[in-house]
């Protein structure tokens, strides 16, 4: 037997069944609805409602500790950056990082050298600067 007649029969039966199912379900739905209620209102109406809202925070906004990363919009990203000549004049206050003379000078040696005497500073190293031939 060919495939198309079989499929055609299946689809025909399915379509008829769908029709019967849809109409049957609709009738059942209407029976279930039975006593349909309907909101009937006329003219202007006023209702009393109760509002529950949290007490006011006294004008301050409650912000949680979670840090928020917001996108910053750069309107003109190719604007040339002006060189800052006078820090005090531009902002009125200067951070301690930018103030001249406020940076602490470290007294600790920056580099140590490992020798046969252990770790020594470059100044203490007696062999420093001398050329040794093997």
């Amino acid at each position: 037997m060919e495939l198309i007649p079989i499929l055609s029969t299946i689809i025909l039966v399915a379509t008829i069944s769908t029709f019967v199912l849809a109409i049957g379900a609709y009738i059942l739905y209407k029976i279930q609805e039975g006593k349909a209620d309907r909101i009937v209102r006329k003219g202007m109406e006023t209702e009393q409602a109760e509002v529950m809202e949290p007490a006011d925070l006294g004008g301050r906004k409650l912000v949680l500790e979670t840090p928020v990363t917001k996108k910053t919009v750069v309107h003109n990203r190719y604007r040339p950056v002006q060189p800052v000549t006078d820090l005090y004049q531009r902002t009125g206050r200067v951070s301690s990082r930018e103030k001249p003379g406020l940076r602490k000078k470290s007294t600790e040696p920056k580099f140590m050298k490992f020798t046969s005497q252990g770790y020594v500073t470059t100044d203490e190293d007696q062999n420093s600067g001398t050329i040794r031939w093997r």
Partner: peptide
């Protein structure tokens, strides 16, 4: 919680 009356017309 603050409760208040609210009239809806």
């Amino acid at each position: 919680v603050k409760k208040s009356a609210f009239e809806i017309t």
